[in-house]
Amino acid sequence: MGLQEISALAASKADAQQTIFIDVRTSAEFSNKRPARSLAFAPLTDLAPEDFAMRHGILPDTPLIILCTSGGRARKAAEKFMKAGFSDVQVLQGGIDAWEREGLPLVGANSAPDIGGPISLDRQVRIAAGSLVLLFGLLGYFVTPGFVWGAIFVGAGLVFAGITNTCGMAMLLTRAPWNKTGCTGGVCPISGKPKGSSGGGCK
């Protein structure tokens, strides 16, 4: 079975006692804005599905809905869970962006639309890539033409990221200090334990 997606509206109606939502963004993004419902936090860079399941007493057939900002990281996390043997895994189509567009409730330090706060990882990648291209372009014009190769390298990296859905710059940025604030310890507790799960990991 291929990777399954679920719309924000459909996900908002999922039974909180049976379905676990897992946010795989950075801790800063999680603290800034997230769906106003029972939610687990497990950043993609530290995600180990078997450890996560053991910690929260989750069974292989427990329904999981995985989300990030727009869907890219959630798909990677979903693939990890599926390879680990989880059979009911869905990705929130369009991520938090889609949830917000539908006007669904949010909580967090900056849960109201258009309020400043930590910049999402997707935007950080665009800012970093654009800054590097601009820098290499200026250096190539004012210092030596050889710096233009730096801009070409960044552009090639973005093309590679688009084709493979793997972005090295994003993986580096997730480890930046400003993306490490908020919840600590890799996984935040879930409020409420789904039916069919075992153990007492969910609080």
Rank of each mutant, 00 (worst) to 15 (best):
D51I: 00
A53N: 06
A53H: 05
M54F: 10
M54W: 12
R55G: 02
R55E: 11
H56E: 01
H56M: 01
H56N: 12
H56Q: 04
I58P: 00
L59W: 07
P60D: 11
D61Y: 06
D61C: 06
D61S: 12
T62V: 01
L64E: 00
I66L: 13
L67S: 07
L67W: 06
L67M: 13
C68S: 11
C68Q: 03
T69P: 00
T69Q: 13
T69M: 09
S70C: 04
S70W: 06
S70F: 04
G71V: 13
G72V: 15
R73P: 05
R73F: 02
R73K: 11
R73I: 08
A74W: 05
A74T: 11
R75G: 01
R75K: 15
K76I: 08
A77H: 09
A77I: 04
A77N: 14
A78F: 01
A78S: 11
E79F: 03
E79H: 13
E79P: 07
E79S: 13
M82K: 15
M82H: 10
M82F: 02
M82G: 03
K83V: 10
K83Q: 14
K83F: 01
K83E: 08
G85C: 06
G85D: 02
S87I: 12
S87L: 08
Q90P: 03
V91A: 05
V91M: 09
L92Y: 01
Q93L: 08
Q93R: 11
Q93H: 12
G94E: 12
G95Q: 02
G95D: 05
I96F: 07
D97S: 08
D97V: 07
A98G: 12
W99Q: 07
W99C: 07
W99N: 02
W99I: 06
E100S: 14
E100Y: 00
R101G: 06
E102I: 05
L104Y: 00
L104S: 04
P105E: 04
P105V: 11
L106F: 13
L106P: 03
L106W: 00
V107Q: 14
V107I: 15
V107L: 10
G108Q: 06
G108T: 02
N110C: 05
N110Y: 00
D114W: 14
D114L: 10
I115G: 03
I115H: 14
G116P: 05
G116V: 10
G116C: 03
G117P: 08
P118C: 05
P118N: 10
P118A: 15
P118Q: 01
P118T: 07
P118F: 13
P118D: 03
I119E: 03
I119H: 03
S120G: 14
S120F: 07
L121T: 05
D122P: 00
D122W: 00
D122E: 12
D122Y: 01
D122H: 08
V125C: 12
V125W: 09
R126L: 15
R126C: 09
R126H: 07
R126K: 14
I127F: 15
I127L: 15
A128I: 02
A128D: 04
G130Y: 13
G130C: 09
